[in-house]
């Protein structure tokens, strides 16, 4: 039985339905991300789990207990907000102790728990500082410690890294993941940043227009998208127009090249998709399909070079490692690109 179960969850704001038949089961200690663009309903789902929004219908249960009717302060759910939400009038230690004081935990235990939490987030020396005396990253760590101090059953993270600069974001996301693993706390993380979701999560829920489009491991979400939205939203995708020449054998024509996908395809024109890393410059073992094209753009990115080539109606973007001894192709050069046709994703047909 799942630790946290969300079944047939729906939410209307007036006539507008923002969450549609949302289902999710989260195991104890699992880290699940809700990923999607703005307005897809991910934060609304999180707020319903926290109790800040009442679902129009559906069930939310933690350890088999339906929590929908419980108020937010009765749910034992910790939450970290995008805007930190530290209490400005309290010091770091007092902020961390807040939930424990509310719950009537004895003073001696509060003291030891606060020390333990500040050690956990690596800020043992800042106990007496006020929030305005901390950086954004430090404030968010204190917010995490405050949420964890009460030992919640579930931890909810509502875009906690969005307000931070890029470098802090990367280090803090690693730190959050380490702490989550160490404590083994069931966590739901909301983000619109796919890199964050893919790098931190055990599973990712990609949301679109209030629906969970796909639920899977980061590997599955990236490599085996089941919907067009997931395929285009997660990562960079090359869209390739093709014409099916033999539907039964899965044979298609891409520009001047004929490729065999090895699976039945619908008749007529179809749209295929390929990740940049599925394409290599020149011949490569295991990638039998060779496409010819003309380079239209070269971006030097340091360790890699991103090339864009016209393959006769479609544009293929792909990366090649920078080798100081080899001059990369220039704009206008004819190049050959290799891919494994069986890896191509069928977007629609």
């Amino acid at each position: 039985m799942a630790f946290l179960k969300i079944a047939h969850l729906e939410k209307f704001f007036g006539p507008m339905q923002v969450v549609k038949d949302f289902n999710l089961e989260v195991e104890q200690g699992e880290f699940v991300s809700l990923l999607g663009p703005s307005g897809c309903g991910k934060t609304t789902v999180l707020r319903m789990v926290a109790g800040f929004e009442a679902p129009t219908s559906g069930v939310i249960s933690i350890e088999d207990q339906d929590v929908v009717r419980l108020k937010p302060n009765q749910r034992n759910i910790g939450m970290v907000f995008q805007a930190y939400a530290l209490f400005p009038n309290l010091t770091v230690a007092q902020n961390v102790a807040f939930g424990l004081r509310v719950k009537g935990v004895p003073r001696s235990e509060i003291k030891s728990r606060v020390t333990e939490m500040l050690d956990l987030i690596g800020l043992p020396d800042l106990a007496n500082r006020y929030p305005f005396q901390l950086s954004g990253g430090q404030q968010q760590r204190v917010a995490l410690a405050r949420a964890l101090a009460v030992r919640p059953q579930v931890l909810l993270l509502d875009e906690p890294l969005s307000a931070l600069d890029a470098k802090i974001r990367v280090s803090l996301r690693n730190e959050i993941r380490l702490i989550q693993k160490k404590l083994g706390i069931t966590t739901i993380f909301v983000t619109h940043d796919q890199e964050e979701a893919l790098s931190m999560s055990d599973r990712v829920v990609v949301m679109h227009k209030g629906i969970a489009d796909q639920v899977g491991t980061p590997f599955e979400i990236y490599n085996k998208p089941t919907t067009k939205f997931v395929a285009t939203f997660v990562g960079t995708l090359n869209i390739i127009e093709a014409e099916v020449t033999d539907p039964a054998a899965g044979q298609v024509r891409i520009g001047a090249t004929t490729a065999t996908l090895g699976r039945p395809l619908p008749k007529g024109k179809i749209t295929l998709a390929a990740r940049p890393e599925m394409v290599s410059l020149g011949t490569v073992p295991g990638r039998a399909t060779l496409l010819k094209g003309r380079v239209i753009d070269v971006d030097f990115l340091g360790s890699v070079i991103r090339l864009r080539a016209d393959i006769g109606g479609s544009v293929l973007a792909f990366d090649t490692f920078n080798n100081p001894n080899i001059v990369p192709p220039a704009v206008g050069d004819e190049v050959e690109m290799a891919l494994n046709a069986a890896d191509l994703l069928l977007i629609d047909g």
């Binding site: 302060n73 009765q74 939400a85 209490f87 400005p88 939930g99 917010a143 405050r146």
Partner: peptide, 25 residues
């Protein structure tokens, strides 16, 4: 709104929120 929600998620009721979070601020 966010301070209220933060306090609620930590188990605080309305009186605690008013007395310990809103009023001091």
């Amino acid at each position: 709104a966010t301070l209220t929600e933060a306090a609620q998620s930590l188990g605080a009721g309305w009186i605690t929120i008013l007395a310990r979070v809103i009023l001091p601020n």
